[in-house]
Design a protein around this nucleic acid. Structure first.
Lengths: 207, 207
DNA sequence: GCTAGTTTGTGAACGAATTCACAAGCCCCT
DNA sequence: AGGGGCTTGTGAATTCGTTCACAAACTAGC
């Protein structure tokens, strides 16, 4: 299969969100034009994005809402459950743990890890906080597919190295540092500081 | 001035982070090659990124660490203080409010807003939680430059419309929806659900 | 002050992503 | 059953972003 651009995948997520809304409202078909308007893009872009994966529409009519959402869920890997571990039981870990959208979409948070004696053994929004020392042995038996780094910048690369050694291939990083991993490990970053700097840049440099 | 790509601005943030680290370690010069290695890019990319804004280096030597960090801080608008309001005093709002990196870089959180009677009047990590009903009148007197949306998806577009009407031109959105704003308002989105879907996509569709 | 060794800054080449534009296909109405 | 009106799917054209490659400019050593 041809390599798919990250931007395409992001848009598929956006389309899926609208499709789910349309499903709830009982709509049966939708046009690329409508999806584009909602998603802030163009109808040609929508059709091109979908065309990488197949033909889901009917000419003259549009896309069947249930069919297309089902197809997108499959494409995005939402047709199964994913086991997720969170490293870092601080505020960000807590915000993640309580977010209902994750479980709804099949992301099952199996545990949180921390090194702070105060936190170990307690629960984070119903999720067990375990000693980071147990990390490797737990992973070996529970085999989660996704790890979330929710600790400060300083220890993040070291934690990522440990994650990589366990064989986990997908990591979501909330620490405000650029991390390095082998090519077969996908690392996505959420960096609030960087986004804010994008805003102050825009405010500063506009005509 | 020529339009600068968002990807360029993101990289500038990354470079600045390393430069600050180098400053702390007392290093005086750095090459584009070194910055590239740390930032996960190429030296040509680093030089091209910087060249949009001027010539900061010395041929044969590299860049002066203090000079380049100062230049990047100016470019990214970090040479002044920005007033920020957070809308939504939930878990995400709390995670933001306690994050020390913001104040360090000149983002001053002036207040948080919520509609929940329970929360109004309390404090979020030392920041006053105010009634959302006061929003417009407060903005008119305090004139913050940046608003952060940290509420669930449902009310987010409506809140953005209110923000836009106050004249605020920069918004950071944590709600998992695509929002629409006039072209002169910069909206950056942080969408954890979308990032996770990027990961499950990568796990599902790889050879 | 000259030479060898670096590293920048930047046009030109390349590659990737988006947009255009239109034939092909489908629905609905008469 | 045929025609008009839509909307998809997709090559081609275009735009945007990255990488290449090298002259220009600097340092350091002799």
């Amino acid at each position: 299969m041809k390599r798919i651009a990250e931007s395409t995948v992001r848009r598929l997520s956006i389309y899926l969100r609208f499709l789910e809304e349309f499903e709830d409202r009982g709509l049966t078909t939708v046009s690329s034009e409508e999806l584009a308007r909602r998603g802030g893009t163009t109808s040609a872009q929508v059709r091109k994005d979908l065309s990488f994966f197949g033909s889901f529409g009917k000419r003259g009519l549009g896309y069947s809402v249930p069919e297309l959402s089902s197809a997108l869920r499959d494409i995005l890997g939402l047709g199964r459950e994913w086991r997720v571990v969170i490293i870092g039981a601080g505020k960000i870990g807590a915000a993640l743990a309580q977010y209902r959208g994750f479980r709804q979409r099949g992301y099952n948070i199996v545990a949180a890890y921390d090194s702070n004696r105060e936190k170990i053994g307690r629960s984070l929004e119903g999720i067990e906080i375990r000693d980071m020392a147990r990390f490797e042995s737990d992973i070996a038996t529970e085999r989660p597919e996704i790890a979330v780094i929710a600790i400060p910048a300083e220890g993040a690369q070291e934690v990522l190295d440990r994650i990589v050694r366990t064989g986990i291939k997908a990591v979501l990083n909330f620490a405000p540092v650029q991390l390095h991993a082998p090519a077969d490990v996908t690392v996505r970053a959420v960096n609030m500081a960087m986004e804010l700097e994008g805003l102050s840049f825009a405010l500063t440099n506009r005509e």
